[in-house]
Amino acid sequence: MALKSTIYKATLNISDLDRQHYAEYPLTLALHPSETETRMMIRLLAFAMFADEALSFTRGLCVDDEPDLWQHAPSGEIDLWIEVGLPSDKRLRKACSRAKRVVLLAYGSDQQFDPWFQGVRKTLMRLDNLDIYRIDDSACDTLTALAERQMRLQCTIQDGELWFTGEAGSAEVRPRPVSVV
């Protein structure tokens, strides 16, 4: 018998001063049995960074040809494809061929990130519609500490920095752009 996903409910109130976007989003996040809470919270971070009424979570880990989040244009084209983690260069090439813009939120220790990045760097240099952001370990840890089955989070974004506050505490995250050149 297959294990079922654990459901997390989040009310995310966003005040994005960089984009002048202010909204509250009731979100349902399914934590896949093979997924960590850290990865789930990075998906929530991605939603906060690019919040839009048309942005949605996908079926995630159980589907190979979908990102973690995406946003479709009214015509059905994929405007934004968001991946989290350290995906293969093949997956990123495929994403860049299907979407107008692809964003990767890379996280993990330096011992994980550095070899991955050196292995895919040549391929990534050719992908003009790919943006990569690195989330450091301490930010991952403080963000993961906010994870609860029922979350009410306030996220303020200014100058590319995100501040999350909730009943379980607070977290400050500054996604760093990664240059592939």
Rank of each mutant, 00 (worst) to 15 (best):
M1D: 09
A2W: 06
T6G: 06
I7G: 12
I7W: 12
Y8T: 06
K9H: 13
T11Q: 08
N13T: 10
I14F: 07
D18H: 03
Y22A: 00
A23G: 13
Y25V: 10
Y25C: 11
P26F: 01
T28A: 08
T28Q: 14
T36D: 01
E37R: 06
T38F: 00
M40F: 08
I42W: 10
A46P: 10
F47M: 00
M49H: 05
E53T: 10
S56C: 01
F57I: 00
R59P: 04
L61W: 11
C62G: 14
D65W: 01
D65Y: 03
E66G: 00
P67W: 08
L69D: 05
W70D: 08
Q71H: 02
H72Y: 09
A73K: 15
A73E: 15
A73I: 09
P74L: 14
G76A: 05
I78M: 06
I78V: 14
D79E: 13
I82Y: 05
L86E: 08
S88Y: 10
D89V: 08
K90G: 09
R91E: 09
A95L: 03
A95R: 04
A95M: 02
C96F: 14
S97A: 15
R98T: 11
V103W: 10
V103R: 12
L104R: 14
L105P: 03
Q112D: 07
W116P: 11
F117W: 04
F117Y: 07
G119Q: 11
V120I: 02
R121C: 05
R121S: 05
L124C: 15
R126H: 10
N129D: 12
N129H: 08
L130F: 07
D131M: 12
I132A: 06
Y133F: 15
S138Q: 15
S138I: 13
D141I: 14
M151H: 07
R152C: 03
D159V: 02
D159Y: 00
G160C: 04
E161V: 04
T165I: 08
G166K: 02
S170L: 00
E172A: 09
V173H: 04
R176Y: 03
P177M: 05
P177F: 05
V178E: 13
V178G: 02
V180A: 02
V181W: 01
